[in-house]
Nucleic acid binder design. Structure first.
Lengths: 101, 101
DNA sequence: TATTCATATGAACCTATAAACATATGAAAA
DNA sequence: TTTTCATATGTTTATAGGTTCATATGAATA
């Protein structure tokens, strides 16, 4: 089922404007994971992750599929990786002097 | 002077996660403008714009130059236009059924 | 160098979003 | 068919960020 809403740019970007969600994205970039796996890896409580993942799903930034009892989330790489690449480039070009983490 | 800070992804994206700032970006995409010009065009109070513009400048999403008494802001198109293009593509591919504005 | 125009800054308030915690749902195995 | 594991959802509280308004700074002209 694909009929999600991505109303407007700023709704989409709210997902990227949040450290936890960026953490989730970074983790899913490495490999698809269940909620509990993310919870252990990131040291974050389960319901917090579920709430965040619901937002990410809402704008199709992640996909999920049921695997036994677990639900495995994966990243929509086609959209996200190019964006991250642009940001990295931006930081090198225009933020030369700043404290990158 | 270019030594601004763009600490982290989410700080950068906060600028895009805000309708007013998206409005500013959309307007500057058309043409560079002073604060007062933006104020009239967008129907938004001056100090509100100055605050927003300060954030946008902080992450080098806009540039500014003094022209007489006015300060003219312009868009960092090199970074922003590619991002907007990705989002548009994303909305067509993955948000086929949603209410686009 | 006082005055005006243009923008920036500060601080208090307000609101939207995230955190926290309890509870519900759902899937599979006993 | 109930028990357990895994995730989602609802509600309250806390907090970050935006708005507002008053004031400060800065650039140019008289």
């Amino acid at each position: 089922m694909k009929n999600v809403h991505c109303d407007n740019y700023h709704i989409f970007f709210k997902n990227l404007a949040n450290p936890l969600k960026i953490g989730i994205i970074a983790s899913l970039k490495e490999k698809p994971s269940s909620v509990n796996e993310l919870s252990e890896k990131l040291g974050v409580e389960q319901s917090k992750l579920s709430h965040s993942l619901a937002n990410l799903r809402f704008c199709s930034l992640v996909n999920s599929k049921q695997v036994g009892k677990k639900r495995v989330y994966s990243l929509n790489k086609k959209t996200i990786l190019p964006i991250l690449r642009i940001i990295d480039k931006h930081r090198q070009a225009d933020c030369a002097g700043c404290k990158l983490k």
